[in-house]
Design a protein around this nucleic acid. Structure first.
Lengths: 225, 225
DNA sequence: GGTTGTCAGCTTGTCTGAGGAGTTGGTAGC
DNA sequence: GCTACCAACTCCTCAGACAAGCTGACAACC
C-alpha cells in the first residue's frame, strides 16, 4: 500500500522534492536542471505538474526558467521566510533582536533627526499618553508601536526601518499576550520612559538616547523572563 | 503591431496582474478569487497559465489554493524579499544594520559564551591571521566573516544569527569591492581589533565587548564614507 | 584563419480537452 | 430538527499538440 492520505497536491510534493535535491547538493548554484519531460519521468508525474512545481520555486526565488535554455538554480535554499522564523522563535530572542535594532536606531536618530521627526515624536507621544489611560488594548498597542516606529524612522536608515517593520507583527502578538496577563496594566505607565527617549534624541545625545532605549526595552524583556 | 519583445512569460505577467489587483483592494484578505476558467477568460489566457500564475503567488505566500474550495488571498502583498532589499539598499545602511546586530550580539556573547565558543574564537582568529598575511582576497574575506559569525553565534540567539546570515551575502560583496580599491590592504592589519573583541567577550565584559565591536565596525563604515 | 549565416535539435511556453478528487450547500427523507 | 445524500462547483492531474526561444555544429564566405 502506498499513501493513505495525500495532504499535499503532487505539484507541491514535487517542489519539495526538488528543493530537497538542491539542498543535498545534487545541483550546484547556477546548474541547469534536467528538462521538464525528464524530470516528469523521474518523479512519475505529468509535465504540467513539474511545471507548476518549478513555478512555485521560481516564486520563492530558488529556480529561474529561461525559455529555450532550461531551468537553473539561483539559490541553494529558499530564502528564509522571516515571518515564519519570527513566529517560531523564542519571544526573548525576538525582543533582543528588536533591542539591537532600536537602540542603534535611537543612537543614529540623535544625530540625524529632522524637525519633522520631532513633530512626529510629539504627535505619537500624545496619542500614546491618551491611549495608555483609557483606550482598549489594541489601540494602546498601536499607539505604542507608532512611537517606536517614529524613533526608528528618525534614524533615516531604510534597512533598520524595514527590519523593524518585519518584527512588528510578532511584537504586536507578544504585547497582546502580555496585556492579557497583566491585569493592572502596569506597563502602560512607562510613558515617562518613552518621553525620555524622545528627549535624548531631541537633545542630540546619541549615547543617552541609546542607553534609555536599551533600558526601556530591557525592562520589557525582563517582564517576560 | 503589438509588442516588440515580450520580456516576461504570460504566466509571470498574469501573476503580476493578480498581485496588482490584490494590492488595489479588489480582493480583501481571506477573499476567494474567481475560478480558474473565469480568471483565464478575464485575462485572456489559458487555464494552465492562470494555474502557473497562482502557483507562483502561492510560492510567495500570497495565495493559497484548496482543492474543491477555491483560491484564497492569505497576504495582501508579497513578503519583502530581504536579499532584494539588501541588494538595493545603500551599503552604509546595510553596515549600520550589521553594526546594530553585531554589537548587541557581542554584548550578549560576553555573558553567554561557552568554552566551545571561546575555542571557536581561537580557531577563526588564527585562520584570519594567516589569511590576512598572504591568502587571496576571497579566502581572507571568508576567514574574516567566519570570526564575526562566531561572535554572533556566541550570543546564542537564533534571531540575531539568522539576521547576520541574511546580511552576509551583501557584506561579502561589499568587502570584495573594498579590497579592490584598497591596494595596500590596509584593513587586513586590524587583526588586533578582532582579538580585542574576542578578549572582551572572554573576559565577560558586555560593555567593553559592545564598545570594541562598535568601534571596529564604525571604522569599517567610515572607510566607505 | 576568422567571421557570418543557417539550421537541426533541444529547451520552455501556451492552449485545449478529458477525467479525477475534494468541498459546499441544498434537499429529500426520517 | 436532524441526518444522508447528491449535484454543482472547485481545484488537480494528465496527455497531446504546437509555438517560441536558445545553443552548438557546420557550411559558406571574406
Amino acid at each position: 500500500m502506498s499513501v493513505m492520505i495525500r495532504r499535499h497536491p503532487l505539484a507541491e510534493q514535487a517542489a519539495e522534492e526538488l528543493l530537497r535535491r538542491i539542498g543535498s547538493g545534487e545541483w550546484v548554484l547556477g546548474a541547469k536542471l534536467p528538462g521538464e519531460t525528464t524530470l516528469a519521468a523521474q518523479l512519475g508525474v505529468g509535465r504540467s505538474t513539474i511545471r507548476e512545481a518549478v513555478r512555485e520555486l521560481a516564486g520563492r526565488r530558488v529556480l529561474e526558467s529561461r525559455q529555450g535554455a532550461g531551468v537553473f538554480v539561483i539559490a541553494l535554499q529558499a530564502a528564509e521566510d522571516w515571518d515564519k522564523v519570527l513566529r517560531k522563535a523564542d519571544i526573548t530572542d525576538v525582543l533582543e533582536g528588536r533591542l539591537a535594532i532600536e537602540t542603534e536606531a535611537a543612537r543614529l536618530a540623535a544625530s540625524r533627526r529632522t524637525p519633522a521627526d520631532l513633530k512626529n515624536f510629539r504627535y505619537t507621544l500624545t496619542d500614546r499618553k491618551r491611549a495608555a489611560v483609557s483606550a482598549p488594548d489594541d489601540w494602546y498597542i498601536e499607539a505604542d508601536l507608532a512611537f517606536h516606529r517614529a524613533v526608528v524612522t528618525a534614524a533615516h536608515n531604510a534597512v533598520l526601518t524595514e527590519l523593524f517593520d518585519t518584527f512588528v507583527p510578532r511584537i504586536r502578538r507578544a504585547m497582546i499576550d502580555m496585556l492579557k496577563l497583566d491585569d493592572q496594566h502596569r506597563h502602560r505607565h512607562d510613558q515617562a520612559a518613552h518621553e525620555a527617549i524622545a528627549e535624548a534624541i531631541r537633545a542630540q545625545d546619541p549615547d543617552l538616547a541609546a542607553d534609555r532605549s536599551r533600558e526601556h526595552l530591557s525592562a520589557v524583556r525582563s517582564t517576560l523572563g
